Amino acid sequence: NRLGIIYEIQGMKAVVLTSEGEFLIIRRRKDMKVGQQVSFENEDIYNV
């Protein structure tokens, strides 16, 4: 599992900021809110 803070939500995608200072786009889940810490898997990351 990886951890990140939700920075922005766009439709079915969420932008998270990881503890390494990396911004990633992941698959959104219904319970996500901006500012929330979430765990996610590598499979949830969109390749940009």
Rank of each mutant, 00 (worst) to 15 (best):
N1C: 14
N1I: 15
N1H: 12
N1G: 11
N1F: 14
N1E: 14
N1P: 13
N1D: 11
R2L: 09
R2I: 13
R2Y: 13
R2F: 09
R2M: 09
R2P: 04
R2E: 03
R2Q: 07
R2G: 07
L3C: 06
L3Q: 06
L3G: 09
L3S: 12
L3T: 11
L3F: 11
L3N: 12
L3A: 11
L3P: 03
L3D: 12
L3M: 13
L3K: 09
G4R: 01
G4P: 01
G4L: 02
G4S: 02
G4V: 02
G4T: 01
G4W: 02
G4C: 03
G4H: 02
G4K: 00
I5Q: 05
I5C: 08
I5M: 07
I5T: 07
I5E: 04
I5K: 09
I5H: 06
I5G: 01
I6V: 12
I6R: 00
I6H: 00
I6A: 01
I6Q: 00
I6W: 00
I6F: 00
Y7S: 05
Y7P: 00
Y7Q: 13
Y7T: 10
Y7H: 09
Y7C: 14
Y7L: 14
Y7A: 10
Y7K: 14
Y7G: 02
E8T: 07
E8G: 12
E8I: 09
E8Y: 14
E8K: 10
E8N: 08
E8D: 10
E8A: 12
E8C: 10
E8P: 00
I9N: 01
I9H: 01
I9R: 00
I9E: 02
I9Y: 03
I9F: 14
I9A: 02
I9P: 00
I9V: 11
I9G: 00
I9T: 05
Q10H: 15
Q10I: 12
Q10P: 01
Q10V: 11
Q10M: 14
Q10D: 13
Q10A: 07
Q10C: 13
Q10L: 06
Q10N: 08
Q10E: 12
Q10G: 07
Q10T: 05
G11Y: 08
G11K: 06
G11L: 07
G11N: 11
G11C: 15
G11H: 10
G11W: 10
G11T: 04
G11V: 05
G11A: 11
G11I: 04
M12L: 05
M12I: 08
M12G: 14
M12D: 15
M12V: 13
M12S: 15
M12E: 15
M12F: 13
K13W: 13
K13L: 07
K13C: 15
K13R: 06
K13E: 09
K13M: 08
K13I: 11
K13Q: 09
K13D: 06
K13G: 06
K13Y: 11
K13N: 08
A14H: 01
A14D: 00
A14R: 00
A14C: 09
A14T: 05
A14Q: 01
A14V: 08
A14E: 00
A14S: 04
A14N: 01
V15N: 05
V15M: 13
V15Y: 13
V15T: 12
V15C: 14
V15L: 10
V15Q: 06
V15W: 12
V15I: 13
V15A: 09
V15G: 05
V15D: 01
V15K: 14
V15H: 05
V16K: 00
V16F: 01
V16I: 11
V16W: 00
V16H: 00
V16Y: 00
L17N: 04
L17Y: 12
L17E: 06
L17H: 07
L17G: 04
L17I: 12
T18W: 04
T18P: 01
T18G: 03
T18I: 04
T18N: 03
T18K: 01
T18S: 07
T18F: 03
T18Y: 02
T18A: 05
T18R: 01
S19C: 12
S19G: 05
S19P: 09
S19I: 09
S19F: 11
S19T: 13
S19M: 12
S19N: 12
S19L: 09
E20G: 06
E20N: 08
E20Q: 07
E20T: 11
E20I: 07
E20W: 04
E20F: 07
E20L: 07
G21K: 07
G21H: 03
G21M: 05
G21R: 02
G21V: 01
G21W: 04
G21C: 12
G21N: 14
G21A: 03
G21I: 01
E22S: 07
E22Y: 11
E22A: 09
E22G: 06
E22H: 12
E22W: 07
E22T: 09
E22Q: 10
F23D: 02
F23M: 14
F23H: 11
F23R: 04
F23P: 02
F23Y: 09
F23K: 10
F23E: 07
F23L: 13
F23N: 03
L24P: 00
L24V: 08
L24D: 01
L24E: 06
L24N: 03
L24Y: 08
L24M: 08
L24T: 06
L24I: 12
L24Q: 09
L24W: 05
L24F: 09
I25E: 07
I25Q: 07
I25F: 08
I25R: 06
I26G: 00
I26H: 00
I26E: 00
I26A: 01
I26T: 01
I26D: 00
I26W: 00
I26K: 00
I26Y: 00
I26Q: 00
I26M: 02
I26P: 00
R27I: 15
R27M: 15
R27L: 14
R27S: 11
R27E: 13
R27W: 14
R27V: 15
R27H: 06
R27C: 15
R28V: 15
R28Y: 15
R28Q: 14
R28E: 04
R28S: 15
R28K: 15
R28I: 15
R28D: 04
R28N: 15
R28F: 15
R28T: 15
R29Q: 07
R29F: 05
R29P: 10
R29Y: 14
R29M: 09
R29E: 12
R29I: 09
R29K: 14
R29A: 10
R29D: 12
R29S: 09
R29W: 06
K30M: 15
K30A: 15
K30R: 14
K30L: 15
K30Y: 07
K30S: 15
K30N: 15
K30I: 15
D31L: 07
D31V: 04
D31K: 12
D31W: 06
D31H: 15
D31F: 14
D31C: 14
M32G: 02
M32A: 09
M32L: 08
M32T: 06
M32K: 01
M32V: 06
M32D: 07
M32S: 05
M32I: 04
M32R: 01
M32H: 15
M32F: 10
K33L: 05
K33N: 07
K33M: 04
K33V: 06
K33W: 04
K33S: 05
V34A: 06
V34T: 05
V34P: 06
V34Q: 07
V34L: 13
V34H: 04
V34R: 04
V34Y: 04
V34M: 10
V34W: 04
V34N: 03
V34C: 14
G35S: 03
G35P: 01
G35M: 06
G35R: 03
G35E: 02
G35L: 04
G35K: 03
Q36S: 08
Q36T: 06
Q36D: 05
Q36W: 05
Q36E: 09
Q36L: 08
Q36H: 12
Q36Y: 10
Q36C: 13
Q36M: 14
Q36V: 11
Q36I: 12
Q37E: 14
Q37W: 11
Q37K: 10
Q37S: 13
Q37A: 11
Q37H: 06
Q37C: 08
V38T: 06
V38C: 08
V38N: 01
V38M: 04
V38A: 05
V38S: 04
V38Y: 06
V38I: 06
V38K: 01
S39V: 11
S39G: 03
S39K: 12
S39R: 09
S39F: 09
S39M: 09
S39T: 12
S39I: 06
S39C: 12
S39A: 10
S39E: 13
S39N: 12
S39L: 08
F40M: 08
F40L: 08
F40S: 02
F40P: 03
F40Q: 01
F40K: 01
F40D: 01
F40W: 12
E41W: 04
E41T: 10
E41K: 12
E41L: 12
E41H: 06
E41A: 12
E41R: 11
E41S: 11
E41M: 12
N42L: 09
N42R: 06
N42C: 11
N42D: 13
N42Q: 08
N42F: 12
N42A: 06
N42K: 09
N42G: 08
N42I: 10
E43A: 05
E43M: 02
E43D: 10
E43V: 03
E43L: 02
E43H: 03
E43G: 04
D44A: 01
D44T: 02
D44I: 03
D44E: 07
D44M: 02
D44H: 02
D44W: 02
D44P: 11
I45N: 03
I45V: 06
I45F: 03
I45R: 02
I45M: 03
I45E: 09
I45C: 08
I45G: 06
I45W: 08
I45K: 02
I45S: 04
I45P: 03
Y46I: 14
Y46C: 15
Y46W: 08
Y46D: 14
Y46V: 13
Y46M: 12
Y46L: 15
Y46S: 12
Y46F: 13
Y46N: 08
Y46A: 12
N47Y: 05
N47K: 03
N47L: 07
N47H: 13
N47S: 07
N47Q: 12
N47V: 12
N47M: 07
V48P: 15
V48T: 13
V48Q: 14
V48R: 05
V48H: 11
V48I: 09
V48M: 09
V48K: 14
